[in-house]
């Protein structure tokens, strides 16, 4: 009995140590998983500049963790972030390039070609046609980040404050949803890209065309009828044509 007690007493520090170590690791694991968001939230609240969502939205200045995905985020991986030397300008890569820091990375002869050669649709819009604004004035110098890249000034998060506000003081995020390079509303494709514009355009065209198609012939036939009646110089069908 005495030897058993002695053995038990000898094991007690090891058991206690094991439990304490396990508890410590479990606590640390719980802290990392549960408390991290709280800590990040505290960090956000303790930031001297960016404390309010409204402020962030109006200025376009966000904390980096709110816009840039962390290195361990699985959904942010994949080919979009693994741009290799074999990029092409067709197919899905056009969309993928909008997420890249340099959206024109490794394009052949990029330095020698004009923007409109590859972006002919982007020549549309009153900013270009009326005000003569050039591509660089909004999209900036090289490297031009894709519009969906997290640091791009064209990213919808900050487009209003970093681009629109240069000319339209006080522009908000909603204002920045104005489609500068609006599609041609007469084309069938616009039904897919900007359905409200397509519907509004054709409704108004139908109204205008309907009005003219009815009332121009109406006025013309009326004029001819009166003219003929007046030339005959008599009371026509109870309607004396006199002014």
């Amino acid at each position: 009995m005495t030897s058993r007690r002695q053995t038990s007493n000898k094991m007690r520090p090891f058991v206690s140590g094991f439990l304490a170590t396990t508890g410590l690791f479990v606590s640390l694991a719980l802290s990392v998983t549960v408390l991290t968001p709280t800590v990040r939230a505290q960090d956000r609240l303790s930031s001297p500049v960016y404390q309010y969502r409204g402020h962030e939205m109006s200025t376009g200045y966000y904390e980096h963790w709110e816009t840039r995905p962390g290195p361990g985020v699985p959904l942010a991986g994949g080919p979009i972030f693994q741009a290799g030397p074999t990029l092409y300008t067709t197919g899905d890569w056009l969309d993928r390039r909008t997420y890249m820091a340099d959206s024109h990375e490794q394009l052949r002869f990029y330095q020698r070609i004009k923007c409109i050669k590859c972006h002919p649709q982007q020549t549309r819009g009153l900013h270009i046609a009326r005000m003569g604004i050039t591509c660089r004035q909004c999209h900036g110098p090289d490297p031009i980040a894709g519009i969906n890249h997290y640091y791009s000034p064209m990213n919808p998060l900050r487009r209003h404050s970093h681009v629109c506000s240069k000319c339209h003081e006080g522009a908000n995020a909603s204002y920045a949803t104005f489609v500068v390079h609006e599609p041609n509303p007469t084309l069938a494709d616009t039904w897919k890209t900007f359905p409200m514009l397509f519907v509004a355009f054709w409704m108004m065209m139908a109204l205008a065309a309907g009005t003219f198609l009815v009332f121009i012939p109406h006025a013309a036939i009326w004029g001819i009828r009166e003219f003929i009646a007046k030339k005959r110089g008599h009371q026509t069908d109870g309607h004396k044509d006199k002014h």
């Binding site: 909603s174 204002y175 949803t177 104005f178 900007f194 409200m196 514009l197 355009f201 205008a208």
Partner: peptide
Amino acid sequence: FPLLVTRILPGWTLNVALWVHRIEAIL
């Protein structure tokens, strides 16, 4: 008043408004 309007409506409604304004003016 686009800045005032876009506090309530999205900015793309200005694209629509411009076309409606043009066609109605022509009409």
